[in-house]
Design a protein around this nucleic acid. Structure first.
Lengths: 135, 135
DNA sequence: ACAAAGTGGATATAATATATCCACTATAGG
DNA sequence: CCTATAGTGGATATATTATATCCACTTTGT
């Protein structure tokens, strides 16, 4: 019942990027040093962010990563989902899962609502909002 | 980012109990058979429920467990907390944890709100509500 | 006295999260 | 065109947590 450390790394990385002038690239190595995150692990994390379309990457000399969208257009739910995949507070809520006794089980609707409430709160908060508070 | 299987076991156990006449005791073994839960594991789970004051237990012959409160007075959050302990969506929200850079980190308040929204939804649903839907 | 049923501790197994290693590809600059 | 840089991707190791099992013990009704 926790977000993973990797998700936190991802959030911190996005905050780093968002706190810089738009379009500036930042090396993963630099971020890892500044945030105390193991480089190799952060590389994987960044790949997930990239796959989700949240960051753009550039290889080679002078390469690095940058936000793919304006900080106003990225919210916390986006980041969490990018790392953890579709959120499912219980197996019975996972996409594609068919509960053997879904007709009589009253639990999944409750969890679904709780989950929706959770995600909605995360959606309300954009990266831009967070950076603003950061100052 | 999931409730554990043990929490689901606990919910199902509470539902079993709530669906019976008030005051009736039910053996853990019976519940485990009916719900397809490993007995020894369910025993541990029941102990957590007992510790949290959600069920009463009786040892020896004719023993078993029963609800400690009326189904109207137990909600989903109670059960989840009984098994998972205090909910903390991130380390920085754990009771007693002091974030090294809490003054500038904008993340924890967001997670705290999301978490509160989640718990509130769970609180809204009593065991009695669920049993009603069950029928 | 005995069998039933919860208590409690120790341990094993499985699953997942976290971290590391290394070979590879793309790219800017000399 | 060579080289150093920086992301890509796969394989593997380690740590942590969740799940499950084993067993000796206590309580209690008959």
């Amino acid at each position: 019942m926790q977000i993973t450390r990797q998700t936190e790394y991802a959030i911190r990385t996005m905050l780093e990027l968002a706190s810089r002038p738009r379009g500036e690239v930042l090396q993963v190595k630099i971020i890892s040093e500044r945030q105390g995150i193991p480089v190799e692990f952060l590389k994987k994390t960044v790949q997930l962010l990239s796959l989700a379309g949240l960051v753009k990457t550039r290889r080679g000399v002078q390469g690095g990563i940058m936000l793919a969208k304006a900080p106003e257009d990225v919210n916390m739910a986006d980041i969490v989902k990018a790392i953890e995949g579709p959120i499912a507070f219980n197996i019975c809520l996972e996409p594609g899962y068919i509960c053997p006794n879904r007709d009589i089980c009253p639990v999944s609707p409750v969890l679904a609502r709780a989950q929706a409430a959770f995600l909605q709160e995360l959606k309300r908060e954009s990266l831009a909002d967070l950076v603003k508070k950061h100052d």
